[in-house]
Amino acid sequence: MRSFRDFASGVGFFLQGFGWVARNGRWWLFGLIPALIAFAVYVVALIFLGTNAGDLAAFLTPFADSWSWRELFRTLVGVALFLGGLALAVLTFTALTLAIGEPFYERLSAAADVLETEDDQPWWRTLPRSIRDSLITLCWVLLFTVPLFFLGFVPVVGQTVVPVLGALISGFFLTVELTTLALERRGMARKQRFALLRANKASALGFGVAVFALFLVPFVAIVAMPAAVAGAALLVRTRLASAP
């Protein structure tokens, strides 16, 4: 029961992020800039993948050349490749947007989570570390999601269990990315941040799954990104910073 309450409170922090940017409209507009840039990059990449999925599927399945149903098989592979690319785009959108918008979101996070003392460093010094941490997080994501991708082809399991597990895993790592700014301002290294979020898993999952679900809707990711950053700062300030 407590886990459910913590999960619900995690969702609530995301909603609080929307409330914060609604009251501070200039920060919402400020946070849209890097999200728009990242979105444009992904649109171009997905259009390229969609128009070349058939050729890529044929390249990856030379063993099917003699099959009578090779066209149907390669169509399914092409669809799977595009859906996999779309899922990867959702998973990496936050990391890329935060990397592009490091100075933007650092200021937005600091405005939502005002500290008396903080580990304040110029963004150009923290950017290489942030990119490295994001790449490590991406490796962890792929470690979980690649097996789930193949399990998605298993009847019944692929249509029921896999989407739920995928949303939970993706949600947790989205929370990892989004809370990085607020936790780094408290001087916490990557291993410390992971340990803290694992110790507060239900809240982290509630927040991240809510973000993940909205980010699946086209264009909503752009609008919701500033709210996600603000909500993550509020989650850290109210729940994580006071955790034992």
Rank of each mutant, 00 (worst) to 15 (best):
R198T: 11
S109Q: 08
G187M: 09
M1Q: 11
G12M: 04
W140Q: 12
A45Q: 12
L216G: 01
G166C: 06
F215N: 10
L32I: 09
F207N: 04
L29P: 00
I37C: 03
V11S: 13
E184D: 13
P128G: 09
P244K: 10
W28C: 11
P34H: 08
I131C: 04
P103D: 12
A232I: 05
T160I: 15
A87Q: 13
V146N: 06
L205W: 13
T94R: 00
L235Y: 06
G206M: 08
L178A: 05
I136E: 10
G84Q: 03
R23L: 10
P122I: 09
R26I: 07
E184M: 09
L91W: 12
V162S: 09
V154I: 15
V21W: 02
D113I: 06
V229C: 04
F13E: 10
I169N: 03
T117H: 13
L181V: 11
L91Y: 09
W27E: 10
I222E: 04
A241S: 15
T145C: 07
T238L: 09
I131K: 01
L115A: 11
L181I: 14
F149Q: 05
M188T: 00
V162H: 08
S68T: 13
W123A: 15
N52V: 03
D133C: 02
G152E: 08
F215D: 05
R186S: 07
E118C: 01
T75L: 14
T145I: 10
F13C: 01
F212Y: 14
F7A: 06
E102N: 12
P103Y: 04
L60E: 08
L108N: 05
A195K: 14
G101P: 06
V41Q: 04
L49A: 14
L127Y: 05
G187A: 11
P147M: 09
S66M: 05
G54I: 04
A53H: 03
G12W: 03
G208F: 03
N24K: 10
A213S: 11
P163S: 06
V176P: 00
F173C: 07
V161M: 10
A243C: 07
T160F: 13
S134I: 01
D113M: 05
L96C: 01
F207P: 06
R70A: 15
R129N: 10
W140F: 14
W20G: 02
W69D: 14
